[in-house]
Design a protein around this nucleic acid. Structure first.
Length: 495
DNA sequence: GAGCCGGCACTAAAATGACG
DNA sequence: CGTCATTTTAGTGCCGGCTC
């Protein structure tokens, strides 16, 4: 047991409360003096000595568990996100990360039963009318306030900021997270195969789930955590989401159970499957149940010729759908907001069926009402999601085989021809590039040096006009001056 | 079509219930 | 099982200019 290192009243020789109040305003030499002051209180004012803030009391509390994370924490906490190895324990509960003026902290590992949803915590916001001490606590996706205790979040009902320095921040950060949910709670263990008893009645709208509802990020982050950590996490998804996910479309089994497959670092046979593993992002819908089976070593998705599915007919004719399953794009700021908003919206309108159109309209208004600081909370989450997406995308691209790309491009070409898509063909990142012409090497040479850029382009910034200037310069070159470019190796390859 | 890149237009993304 | 309703954002495609 380590010795205490926090301050106590004895460290100061006088009451810390007295000390603090004296420091706060020279006129207040004691808590009692504060009560007697005529100065208007900008914060919730105590009305008796019993209510006075006492640092002594705080200092005598046992020290809080220290954050357990790896890496460094940049001012926004993004680095902590990136380097964090226990993402599913991460709680952005306070303002240095998600709010203003708070702390980066982790949930209590012993009591925490949620998912990375925790780091959506605190993403509360306030909309007109102004907050009052009587305002109900925010009841968003974030932290568990008992639904019976607070009014649900809605554009027309005020809710309390989760900023820790908000005087009206009325205790909505309870670690006890209980909320109504019509969602199906899914307990996921961190094994590669997850099993969930699943019966139709579980889909009913009156199920009480003790779990926080996940946002997109929750699920994404949880996917990460699920494959890297041993502590169980929880996930709830709506029946619809389930329908569109790997969960029920691909994994519903005759035995009435859902089998979750987390294929980690699957030892692909050659060629590697185009959809190596749904280890990130939202649980994606698989093409067919059979497609999602766990492949044994040596067996690959592409190599199977048994019972060819429609997409496997791509080997024969024009594919009717893409066989690739790239990572989903990261949710935008709005999407993250709206996902949370919708959760709360549903609790507000429990009697009616959800009208997504109306919710989106209301959500749009609520979104516009956010302050910059409040939006920044979502922007940061979006940035983090984007970074993660880019990592996933790069990893996914590395798994593509030339055959994957060829078949995908056949599909895309057909889609473009049919006017169904504008997507261009995939490029093979590993394919050798066509050699640059001498003129293009000349262009590169110019752009590689600011002095040459100034010499040739002057102050011209428009690329099209730069091209004209460069072409003019190229024509002015003598054969001898062009020689270095003409003599360059004409074949470039990429490793 | 290879290189560049600003600007514009378009599209995909998420949520869920209803419907064909 | 796909599409539609709605919102905002971010990503993508395309264009122009040039030469080979």
């Amino acid at each position: 047991m380590s010795s205490r290192t926090w301050l106590t009243a004895s460290d100061y020789g006088q009451s810390l409360a007295d000390h603090a109040f004296a420091a706060f305003d020279p006129e207040w030499t004691s808590p009692a003096a504060m009560l007697n002051t005529d100065t208007p209180h900008l914060v919730a004012a105590p009305t008796s000595l019993d209510m006075m803030f006492s640092i002594d009391d705080m200092c005598d509390q046992p020290p809080q568990p220290q954050p357990q994370f790896t890496g460094t924490l940049d001012p926004w906490g993004d680095q902590a996100f990136s380097a964090y190895t226990h993402l599913d324990q991460l709680v952005l509960d306070e303002t240095d990360l998600d709010n203003h003026g708070g702390n980066f902290c982790l949930s209590d590992p012993t009591s925490f039963s949620g998912s990375p949803s925790s780091w959506d915590v605190g993403s509360a916001f306030n909309i007109d009318p102004p907050l009052t001490p009587d305002s109900p606590a925010y009841h968003g996706d974030s932290f568990g306030v008992s639904p019976g205790q607070v009014a649900p979040f809605s554009p027309s009902s005020p809710f309390v900021s989760s900023f820790s320095n908000d005087p009206f921040n009325v205790g909505h950060k309870s670690r006890v997270r209980t909320r109504l949910s019509g969602r199906v709670p899914i307990r996921r263990d961190n094994t590669h195969t997850h099993t969930l008893s699943f019966s139709p009645q579980l889909r009913g709208p009156t199920i009480q789930s003790p779990q926080p509802s996940p946002t997109l990020q929750h699920m994404r982050a949880m996917s990460h955590s699920a494959v890297t950590h041993s502590r169980p996490t929880n996930l709830t998804v709506s029946p619809r989401t389930l329908r569109n996910s790997t969960l029920d479309a691909a994994l519903a089994q005759p035995d009435g159970q859902l089998h979750f497959h987390h294929v980690i670092a699957t030892p692909f046979s050659s060629p590697a499957p185009s959809n190596p593993a749904p280890i990130s992002g939202k649980l994606r819908r698989a093409s067919t149940p059979s497609d999602d089976k766990v492949l044994s070593v040596g067996e690959s998705d592409l190599s199977s010729n048994r019972n060819p599915s429609p997409e496997r007919s791509a080997d024969i004719g024009t594919p009717t759908r893409s066989r690739l399953h790239p990572p989903k794009q990261a949710p935008s700021t709005w999407q993250i907001f709206f996902t949370e908003y919708l959760q709360s919206y549903k609790t507000t309108n429990t009697k009616r069926k959800l009208n997504v159109s109306q919710a989106a309209k209301d959500g749009g208004a609520a979104y516009k009402a956010l302050s910059d600081d409040q939006k920044e909370i979502y922007r940061r989450k979006a940035r983090f999601a984007k970074e993660e997406y880019e990592r996933e995308l790069a990893a996914w691209q590395r798994t593509l085989t030339p055959d994957d790309i060829r078949q995908e491009n056949v599909f895309r070409s057909a889609q473009r021809k049919a006017g169904k898509s504008r997507r261009s063909n995939l490029k093979d990142p590993n394919a050798p590039k066509k050699p640059l012409s001498a003129y293009f090497m000349f262009l590169q040479w110019i752009r590689a040096d600011p002095a040459r850029v100034q010499d040739v382009f002057g102050d011209e910034t428009e690329t099209t006009r730069q091209s004209v200037l460069a072409a003019s310069k190229w024509r002015e070159l003598s054969d001898a001056e062009k020689n270095p470019f003409l003599a360059r190796p004409s074949v470039r390859t990429r490793v």
